[in-house]
């Protein structure tokens, strides 16, 4: 393959998304709310369509605003349904996001027929499109989405650094955090807000499948492999970045030879490449699979990551739970 400027931009967008997602994503895995990001990524569709319809443009800023409003609304609606109307949590997620998505799809069909905002883009993302739409800022020409993602990464990183202690305490021991006056409810709401904003920004760049894959899979893989939270976060970022790069390369390199091998020369020649978002999700899944296999007692990787490191641990920061890995 010939590596072009476009490839660099696509990978750089995917890398930025993986950094942005790994931070709230890991906490979502620990708080057992992984499917929320999937729900938000689907539920923002009516917001996108309406913002597009009302503004009459595909201006990224307007679309983002519409989607973010709907994203935050969705997560609070899910909470309201489960706390006030006593709808069971998982069912509340299912009810809210499918209703919103259905509304979005219907609006899309009726209002925005034949325009850029196509359902496929929503599902598969518009990485190629996003990569070609560039803006010069501070002497640097980068895709518009990249600037947005840089802002989200900065926001997430600053929020994590400032609220590290209460955030960690609220994830692992909310009761103790409450006694210490650390306000776990505020941390929960804050995390929901960060998740909604990050999901929408990432969704703009890579589509809804990759959002759930990038938010949850690297964090889950890292949780399997490491014990201390800072290591887990760093590992999640690293896994996201490497998965994005490898996934995109495979999406460009793999399809044609595979197609020629299985479908024969004539049909295979028609195939050039495939969805980068899809392949990145597959690679992230494979990373998880490898990590899960490495967890076997005799696996060397397991000793490397899980052994030692007992010195300097902070209480409450360890990911140990009632069921240790060795059981």
């Amino acid at each position: 393959m010939t590596w072009t400027d476009l490839d660099t931009r696509i990978v750089s967008i995917a890398v930025l998304v993986s950094i942005a997602c790994a931070l709230p994503g890991t906490f979502l895995v620990l708080k057992r709310m992984s499917m929320l990001t999937h729900a938000i990524a689907h539920a923002v569709l009516p917001g996108l369509v309406l913002a597009f319809f009302l503004s009459g443009s595909l201006n990224l800023g307007v679309l983002m605003l519409g989607a973010m409003v709907v994203g935050v609304l969705t997560s609070s609606l899910i909470q309201k349904l489960s706390s006030f109307a006593k709808v069971e949590g998982n069912a509340a997620i299912g009810v809210v996001f499918t209703a919103m998505l259905a509304l979005g799809l219907l609006l899309l069909r009726m209002l925005a027929e034949g325009i850029h905002l196509h359902a496929d883009c929503v599902i598969e993302g518009r990485m190629t499109l996003a990569a070609t739409d560039t803006v010069r800022f501070a002497g640097l020409r980068l895709p518009t989405v990249s600037w947005l993602l840089i802002a989200v990464v900065a926001m997430n990183a600053i929020a994590m650094l400032v609220f590290w202690r209460p955030l960690v305490a609220s994830v692992f021991d909310p009761d103790h955090a409450r006694l210490q006056g650390l306000r776990p409810e505020w941390m929960h709401q804050g995390l929901m807000g960060l998740t909604a904003i990050t999901t929408v920004a990432a969704f703009e760049a890579v589509g809804s499948i990759l959002v759930v894959a990038l938010m949850v899979i690297p964090g889950a893989t890292a949780v399997l492999l490491a014990t201390r939270l800072p290591v887990v976060l760093a590992l999640a970022v690293f896994l996201g970045i490497s998965g994005s790069a490898v996934g995109h390369v495979l999406a460009v390199v793999l399809p044609r030879p595979m197609a020629q091998l299985t479908l024969g020369q004539e049909l295979g020649d028609r195939v050039s490449d495939t969805s980068s978002a899809g392949m990145i999700a597959v690679v992230l899944g494979l990373q998880f699979l490898i990590a899960a296999l490495c967890l076997r007692r005799d696996a060397p990787l397991r000793r490397m990551f899980r052994g030692g490191g007992a010195a300097g641990r902070q209480p409450g920061v360890e990911l140990s739970r009632s069921t240790p890995a060795s059981s």
Binding site: V212, A213, M215, V216, A251, T274, G278, P324, A325
Partner: peptide
Amino acid sequence: RLPKIREDAALAIVLGAFFGLGIALLGV
């Protein structure tokens, strides 16, 4: 059933990986 992974994460992981594979195949 893996240590430290609960069902919500399992659902999201499998969904992401399977659907990603489906989209990649669909692209072909």
